[in-house]
Design a protein around this nucleic acid. Structure first.
Lengths: 224, 224
DNA sequence: CGCGAATTCCCCCAAATGGGTGAGGGCGGC
DNA sequence: GCCGCCCTCACCCATTTGGGGGAATTCGCG
């Protein structure tokens, strides 16, 4: 995959009919919700028909209003964006969700796209860029901004972590020692060290502290 | 010509309570800026007269428009909120800056208040709470929301780090070893270890990995 | 001036960590 | 069946780390 991913499935009727694109806006920050609504309403041919402040509410409201597009934040208290996207796309396979996140962390981008998001935008992008992506996604074009696509590309270059390595990393982030990780996962300490060795190699770091920071930086594991 | 609408139609509030509160909105995210502008304009008695997308621009624009209140994000590319507040308050000691941040990290709150901010709001707060704080600050009342005040309280319970301890922590976060930190700061390795000991005690952690995570969690040091 | 706090450095020593290497079992794909 | 991967565990060994002391210097504050 290169920097721009576009899969074109044009629908003439959408382009020609006067009907507006009907958006559902999901974000836990009231001012951001207001901004997105203002942004959408300022664009001809699109309108916000509903809003939600977390993943659970988003799922409910989606079923109620069946919007053309969902504009969704990723990190929200309670059910996050990824779970909401999975749930919505399972029930409505043609749902079109655009993620609008603060962070361009490669693991976040990957998780969002994997779970069914059609695009991934950043909150520091311009009104025009956001609006034009809404239009593209509505036309069935699944496009990623260059900056985001690059991050996804970087991720693919980084070797994938195995399940066990992720488990170890999770405890590592909590500040646990090898011994503690071993007993938590019912492993010998030697096995934990073994996983750590490959983990360090894959993350290209020398020690656990660097690993923790890299993991946080890439969004591989969440803090809090 | 007599085509100025502003002059001809004065609002009721303007007549009763004098002029509107004039706001400067500073945030690097276009949709958030739109949201804050929409939020302010939806409130009677206040108006947005200018906007900026980073610290430097904020300083310039402040001098130009001399707003009654600044609504400022903390983490922005280039010059951040803290530096901007310091610069503005130095030149205009009666400036009223309200920080509007995503994070309730105690160090962020402390730095903002120390540098001269009159209040610290979170982006997940309601429109009403944000608006009422603007009014309070404009009346000269410097109030902190309970949630934020509690965080600040927690911080005061944690022992302050010394300058040197911060220096060591900074390199620690970068994944440096004791030896590397020592040579970077022109210290003996023993001195670094000495600072680390008190650092661990103050942060109530057992090792450097926990220290790194705690430091990030509290916003003591920035990642990226 | 005495006190505390910060900074610098030292010693000792136990424990934890990280690197190298190897090895057996399981499981899926060609 | 064989190959590659994952998972498990083991041993050796050097280095790093962290905890316990102590000590000299500076510097500001009452």
């Amino acid at each position: 995959m290169t920097s721009e991913v576009k899969v074109s499935v044009p629908k003439k009727e959408d382009l020609e009919s006067g009907a507006k694109i009907r958006l559902l806006v999901v974000d836990d920050h009231p001012p951001m919700r207001m901004g997105l609504i203002a942004l959408i309403k300022s664009q001809p041919g699109m309108d916000v028909i509903a809003e939600a402040s977390d993943g659970e509410e988003a799922i409910e409201v989606y079923d109620d209003v069946l919007p053309d597009i969902v504009m969704m934040d990723l990190r929200m208290p309670g059910m996050g964006g990824v779970e909401a996207i999975l749930s919505i796309c399972k029930k409505h396979p043609d749902a079109k969700v655009i993620v609008l996140s603060t962070y361009d962390w490669d693991e976040d981008i990957h998780r969002a796209i994997q779970s069914g998001a059609k695009s991934y935008l950043l909150k520091d992008m311009s009104v025009e860029e956001i609006a034009s992506t809404v239009r593209e996604v509505h036309e069935g074009i699944s496009s990623l901004p260059r900056q985001v696509a690059e991050r996804l590309e970087e991720r693919s270059k980084r070797q994938q972590l195995t399940e066990r390595e992720r488990d170890v990393l999770e405890y590592l982030i909590k500040g646990r020692s090898n011994k503690e990780i071993a007993s938590s996962l019912y492993l010998s300490e030697e096995t934990v060290k073994s996983h750590l060795k490959s983990l360090f190699a894959k993350l290209k770091v020398r020690d656990r502290t660097e690993a923790a920071i890299e993991a946080i930086r890439h969004g591989i594991v969440q803090i809090d």
